[in-house]
């Protein structure tokens, strides 16, 4: 059965006075997909998530949520849950009271809801269900916010920085919940500055910069377009590794003469890296660790959003980014 996309946005614009928060944003999120929203501070992520949650109305463009066009009046679309700018919780109430109040507010229009206890269990907060939220850590609040969103068994879940303040156990809970929802057909749109989280959870990402989409597509495509990456190697013989890396065609040593524990950093395409590994093995040098210094997503993020670069390079990067984004969208449309 054909299911409409969870989100279909075309040319969305939104301004606050003279500040353009979103300048013609396109976004497609399929049902069952976990879609990451990335961008530097002020890129328009929260504004876009707010539009999806029905907290504001776009100035221009068209927006369809769960197959229903969003009108020009403020209304939270049906089947949508989540939070932006942190989960809204009342510190004077307990975790259970917070959720019970929400369940009471939502029961009217969502039919049977997941029980409060189930939601608390899913995010691992059963033990503190009757504690006041005032004493909760940031991570616990994040998980409680997710539990609140689960109460409505949403078909589109919007999460703004859900991994903020989470410890490893909390992160595991959240990842498990999000993956479970997606597996059952819920579309999840989440923003985060944690590239490792996005890489682990998302099948597609959209990168925003100054209110515009600079990339939107699968992570694999992003990795392919991010070009040469830096890789760190830790070997049993750093000097030999340095020599072999220097001799490998297409590979450049970025740092050398390193202490054994920090490793050797090289830059080049993946085939050249494969060749280096073969040579290391051939030379009897044990390879103890090999991995990118930063994830492809992080590398692409820095390149596309022109972070930490000078004005000239920024202009260049933006041009490249727009070209990449355009190419990605053309590819995506061709693939449909």
């Amino acid at each position: 059965m054909h299911r409409p996309p969870a989100v279909r946005a075309r040319g969305i614009t939104k301004s606050f006075g003279e500040v353009i928060a979103l300048g013609g944003v396109d976004l497609d999120v399929a049902s069952g997909q976990v879609h990451g929203l990335v961008g530097p501070n002020g890129a328009g992520k929260t504004t876009l998530l707010g539009l999806l949650l029905g907290l504001a109305v776009a100035d221009g463009g068209s927006l369809e949520i769960l197959g229903t066009p969003v009108g020009r009046t403020l209304a939270v679309p049906d089947g949508v849950a989540g939070f932006v700018d942190g989960p809204g919780l009342y510190p004077s109430l307990t975790a259970r009271q917070n959720l019970a109040a929400l369940a009471s507010l939502r029961r009217y229009d969502t039919g049977p809801t997941a029980s409060v206890d189930d939601a608390l269990e899913q995010v691992g907060l059963t033990d503190v269900a009757d504690d006041r939220v005032r004493g909760f850590s940031l991570g616990m609040r994040q998980r409680l916010g997710l539990a609140a969103a689960l109460l409505t068994t949403p078909r589109l879940l919007i999460l703004d920085e859900p991994a903020n303040g989470l410890d490893p156990a909390g992160k595991r809970h959240v990842h498990r919940v999000i993956s479970g929802l997606a597996a059952n057909g819920t579309a999840v749109v989440l923003s985060s500055h944690r590239m490792d989280d996005l890489a682990a959870l998302c099948s597609e990402v959209t990168i925003l910069a100054t209110g515009r989409v600079v990339f939107s597509g699968p992570l694999g495509k992003l990795a392919a377009e991010s070009g040469e990456l830096d890789y760190r190697l830790v070997t049993s013989d750093p000097a030999a590794a340095h020599r072999l890396a220097s001799e490998t065609p297409g590979l450049r040593v970025v740092t050398g003469g390193e202490p054994a524990q920090t490793g050797l950093v090289v830059r080049g395409p993946e085939p050249a890296l494969d060749e280096l590994v073969v040579r290391l093995v051939g030379a009897g040098v044990a390879l103890r660790e090999l991995g990118p210094v930063m994830t492809p997503l992080e590398a692409a993020f820095l390149a596309l959003t022109a972070t930490d670069v000078g004005p000239e390079a920024e202009t260049e990067a933006r041009t490249e980014a727009r070209t990449a984004a355009g190419a990605a969208q053309i590819d995506e449309e061709n693939s449909r």
Binding site: D78, G79, S104, L105, D109, T113, T153, R155, N184
Partner: peptide, 22 residues
């Protein structure tokens, strides 16, 4: 963990005032 999808209700209705008041 089990997560189930709710059937879409007929229309979007706001919470009753009595619930909000409480």
């Amino acid at each position: 963990m089990t997560v189930t999808l709710a059937q879409p209700p007929a229309g979007v209705r706001p919470a009753p005032i009595s619930h909000g008041y409480r």
